[in-house]
Design a protein around this nucleic acid. Structure first.
Lengths: 201, 201
DNA sequence: CCCGAAGTGATACTGAGTACCAGACTGGCA
DNA sequence: TGCCAGTCTGGTACTCAGTATCACTTCGGG
C-alpha cells in the first residue's frame, strides 16, 4: 500500500516534470521559429514559460536541449529494435530496420518534422548538439552490433562496430537532409533506403 | 616592380601572420595538455603568447580554433587528391586513397598525433568542433564525388554523395579512435583499411 | 611630410552556464 | 496538530566566451 502510494507519487511527480518539460519545449520551439534560435535568450524562454532562468537550467542542461532532449530517449528504443531482429540478418540490414523507429516519429505530421529540420539547418550549434545526442545512440548500439560480428581481430583493434553504427546514423542524417532539401518530395523511407543501399552494394 | 614589391609585402605579412598563429597554437597546445582545455582561458593563452585577448579573437574565431584551424586547410588537399584518382576506381576506393593525405600527417611523429587525439578525447566541445571542420571537407568533396556517380535519380533527391563522403569521414574518425584506444598498437593505415573495408564488402 | 590603411589594445557589453543561499512546499511521524 | 527532512524554486553573484567600438600606432605610398 505504502509502496504503491509512493510509486504513484513518484509517477505523479515524474508526470508533472514531463508535462513541464513539454510545455517549455513547445514555447521554445515557437520562439525559435519566430525569431531564430540565436536571437532567443534563455531569459526570454523562461519568462514566457513562467519559470526562472535558474529553474530552466535545472530542467535543461543547455539552451539547445530544450528542443533536443527527446532525441536522447530514442537510443534505448533503437537498441531494443536492433536486438529484436533475427541474427540471420546482416547487421547493416538490422540497423536499417531499427531505424523504422525513427521513421515512425511524426510520420503522420510530416510538416512538423520538416519545420524541425529547417530550424536545425539554420543553426550550426543546434546541428552539432543533435549530433552529440546521436553519438549517445551510437555508444548504446555499438556493443550490441559487436555481438553480431565475427572475426579474429581483438575487440580493441576492431573499428567495425563503430563504423557500422556511425555510418548508419550518417545515412539517417543524409536521408533527413535530402528530404528537407527536396521539400519532402520523396518520402524519408525511400531516401533512407537509397542512402543505406549506397553502402551495402 | 611595384606589383612584385606589393606582393612581397603581402607575403611577408602573411608569413608573419602564419608564424604568429603557429606560435600561439604551440603555446595553447601546451597549456591544454598541462591543465586541460576547459581549465585554460583565452586570457591565459593570450597572456603567455604576449598578445591581447582582443587580438587573439582576431586570429582565431573561437578558443578551440587555436588548435584546430590546420584541419580546415586539409579540405582542398583532399579534393585535389580525389580528383587526381582514375575515374575507373570506385568512388569509395578513391576516397580511401585520398585519405593518404591524412595518413601522411605526423606519420613520422605518431606520439604527437596520439597526444592530439587524447586531448580531443577528453573534451566533447573540442570533438564537436573538429567534426564541424570535417563537415567543411564534406561540403568540398560532395560535388566532386557526385560527378563519379551515375543514376536516374534527380540530384536533389540523391543522398549518395552525402552518404559516401560522410561515411568515409566517419571511417577515418573510427580508425583514429581505435588507434588511440589500442595505444597505437596497430597502424592508422591498417585500421583505416579495416574500417573502410567494413562497408565496401 | 602627410595620408590612409591595417593592426593592436583597452573598455564595455551580452548571454550562457555555474555556485550558493534562502525561502516555500510536501509528505511522514510523533 | 505541530515538527522535521528532503525537494523544488528563485535570487544573486560570478566566470568566461564572444562581439562591438574607439583610440592609438605603424608603415608604405604619394
Amino acid at each position: 500500500m505504502q509502496v504503491s502510494e509512493t510509486s504513484e507519487k513518484r509517477s505523479l511527480r515524474d508526470r508533472t516534470r514531463l508535462a513541464m518539460r513539454d510545455e517549455v519545449s513547445t514555447i521554445a520551439t515557437r520562439l525559435f521559429a519566430e525569431q531564430g534560435c540565436t536571437n532567443t535568450t534563455v531569459e526570454q524562454i523562461a519568462a514566457e514559460a513562467g519559470l526562472s532562468r535558474t529553474t530552466f537550467f535545472r530542467y535543461f542542461g543547455t539552451k539547445e536541449d530544450v528542443v533536443l532532449t527527446w532525441i536522447e530517449d530514442l537510443g534505448p528504443q533503437l537498441v531494443e529494435a536492433f536486438v529484436a531482429r533475427p541474427t540471420t540478418e546482416t547487421p547493416w540490414h538490422s540497423l536499417r530496420r531499427s531505424f523504422d523507429v525513427l521513421l515512425q516519429i511524426n510520420a503522420d505530421a510530416p510538416q512538423k518534422a520538416l519545420d524541425f529540420e529547417r530550424m536545425l539547418e539554420a543553426n550550426p550549434t543546434m546541428r552539432a548538439r543533435r549530433r552529440e545526442k546521436q553519438h549517445e545512440w551510437e555508444k548504446l548500439l555499438r556493443p550490441v552490433v559487436a555481438t553480431r560480428l565475427t572475426g579474429d581481430v581483438p575487440a580493441d583493434q576492431d573499428p567495425r562496430p563503430r563504423v557500422l553504427v556511425a555510418s548508419a546514423v550518417e545515412c539517417w542524417n543524409a536521408a533527413l537532409d535530402t528530404w528537407r532539401r527536396c521539400d519532402a518530395a520523396v518520402s524519408r523511407e525511400v531516401l533512407l533506403d537509397r542512402a543505406m543501399d549506397t553502402l551495402s552494394a
